[in-house]
Simulated assay, not measured.
Amino acid sequence: MAALRARPQGIQTVYGGLFYGRYGTLTHRAAEEAHAVLEEGHKSCAVSSGRAAMVCVLMGLLRKGDVVLYSSDITPALKSFLCVEMKRLGVTSVSFQASSSRDALLSQHGPDLDRARMVLVETFSPSSPALADVPMLAELCRQRQSLLVVDNTWAFGWALQPLKEGADVSVASLGPLAGDQEWDLGMVTSRRELWPRIVSSCKRLGLVASPEQTYQTLRGLRTLPLRMRQQDQTTRAVVEWMMGVEQVSRVFHPMLEGGAAEKGFTGFPPILSFCLSSENSEEEQVEALVESLKRFRLGWDGSVGGELSLVWPVGLVSDWRREQNFRRPDESGERGRILLYIGLEEAGDLIEDLRRAFECLQEIQDGRT
C-alpha cells in the first residue's frame, strides 16, 4: 500500500508506466523506445495500424474550423477520412501536388498554406517517383506556425528522419517493414510539445496494438536497416538494368529524378514501376509478361514491405489508387504500367527472371509480325 500511495498520478502513470494492458506493456514500451531512437523523436506510441496512427494524430491535433493541406498521393482511405469524417467535425481539407516546387506551391496554394493548421504529406508514394521535400515544407510551416505531419512508412528508420528535417510528427506503418506481409502495426512519433495531446488521443480512441504484433515488430527492427540497405542496392541494380530494356518506354524511380540528398534522403524505397512501349502494351502482352515471372509474386502496392518480391500490373486491372482499367492511360499518360516491389532475393536472380519474361514478350511480338 505504501508503494501504491507513493506512485505518481496522472498521465505519466497511465500513459508512461505500467497501469493497464490497454495502455501498454513492457513489450510496447521497448518497441516504442526503439522506434523513437530510429526516428530521432521525443517519444513514440504504438497503435493497431498505420491508418490508426494517422487518425490519432488528426483527432488529437485538429479542431473545428482548422484547415488541412494534404498531398494528393496519400492513401485513398486516409483521403476519405479527411474528406468525410473530419469534414463532419468541421475540418476543411485541400489537396496539393506532392512534387510541387516551393514556387509552384506558393503560387497555387499560397492562401491555403497561410490558413492551414496542418500540412500532411507522404515521403514517397508507389503511384509517383517523386520524393517529398520535407525540409522545404518544414520551413514553410515554421514561417506560418502550422504543423507538418509526415507519413514516413517508406523511408522509416533508415532513409529519412522527418523530425530531424523539421517535421512535427512522423507516422509509420510498421508491420510489413518489420519483415512480415501478413499484419500491420502503426507508430506515431512527435516533438516534445505535441506528445501529451497525441498520446492522449491514441489511448482515448482505443486503437491498441496487440502485444504479439509489437513483439514481432521489435524483433524485425533489429534487422531493418540491414534489410532496407540490401533492398535499396538491389532495386538500383534492377532500375539500371530496366533502363536498357528495348520493350520498356519509361522507368519510374526516385533515383532517376535527382535531388534526394537535398531533401534529406539517404536511400530509396524498394519500389519501381515501368511502362511498356506502345507495341508491347496490349492486354495479352502485359498478362504474358506477368505470368512469365517466377520470382515475383502477384501482389498489390498495399501489401508490400516484406521479404518477397511482388509484381502488380497497374494498367491491367482496376487499381485501388486510380480506379482505372487497362484501356485508360494512367497518370503518366502511358499504358501498360507495371509496379515492382523488390524483396530480399539476389539482384542477379531477379534480373534473370525479368530477362526471361521479356524474352517471352518478344516471342509474342515476333509471332505477330
Rank of each mutant, 00 (worst) to 15 (best):
R229P: 00
Q247T: 00
Q247L: 08
V248M: 02
S190Q: 11
R192L: 14
G186T: 12
W154N: 14
V248T: 03
V245N: 00
S200E: 14
G186N: 10
G186D: 13
L207I: 10
A237V: 00
V248L: 06
L207A: 08
T214E: 05
L177V: 15
L205W: 05
W195Y: 13
L207F: 13
R197H: 14
F252E: 06
V239G: 05
V238T: 02
R227T: 04
M187Q: 07
Y215F: 15
V238E: 01
P225L: 05
R191A: 08
V208R: 08
A178K: 02
F252W: 09
T217R: 03
G267Q: 01
D184P: 01
V150H: 07
F156C: 12
Q230N: 07
L207W: 11
D151G: 13
V150G: 10
M228Q: 13
A172G: 05
R204T: 14
Q233G: 03
D168Y: 07
L185P: 04
S146Q: 13
P196F: 14
L148R: 07
K164F: 09
R236G: 02
Q231T: 09
G259D: 10
T223L: 06
E182F: 14
Q181K: 10
T217V: 15
G267S: 12
G186R: 06
Y215M: 09
R191T: 15
R191F: 03
G259P: 12
T234E: 00
R227N: 12
L147V: 12
R227P: 01
V150P: 09
Q181N: 13
T153G: 10
W195E: 11
E165G: 03
K263C: 06
E246R: 06
V199H: 05
Q233H: 07
K164H: 14
E240C: 03
S249G: 12
V149G: 09
G267P: 04
A159W: 00
P162F: 09
V171T: 11
Q181D: 15
L147H: 06
Q231G: 07
T235F: 02
W158A: 09
L256Y: 06
E240M: 01
T266R: 08
K164R: 15
A261R: 14
L205V: 05
A261P: 01
Q247F: 08
F265P: 02
L147K: 08
K263D: 05
E212W: 14
M228E: 11
V239C: 07
L205Q: 14
Q213K: 11
E193A: 13
V169T: 09
E165S: 10
G179D: 08
V245K: 00
D151K: 11
C202V: 15
R219T: 12
P162Y: 12
L160I: 03
S249P: 01
L221G: 00
G258W: 03
W183P: 05
V199R: 06
W158L: 10
V188L: 14
V171D: 12
G175M: 12
Q231F: 02
E182Y: 14
L207M: 15
G179N: 05
G186Q: 09
M187R: 03
M228L: 11
V238S: 00
G258S: 12
G244E: 04
D168L: 05
G175T: 07
A209H: 05
M255Y: 02
R192F: 12
R192S: 13
D184Y: 04
G220L: 06
A167H: 07
A167R: 04
G264V: 01
L147E: 07
P254L: 04
P211D: 13
S173K: 13
R229H: 11
E240I: 00
A261V: 11
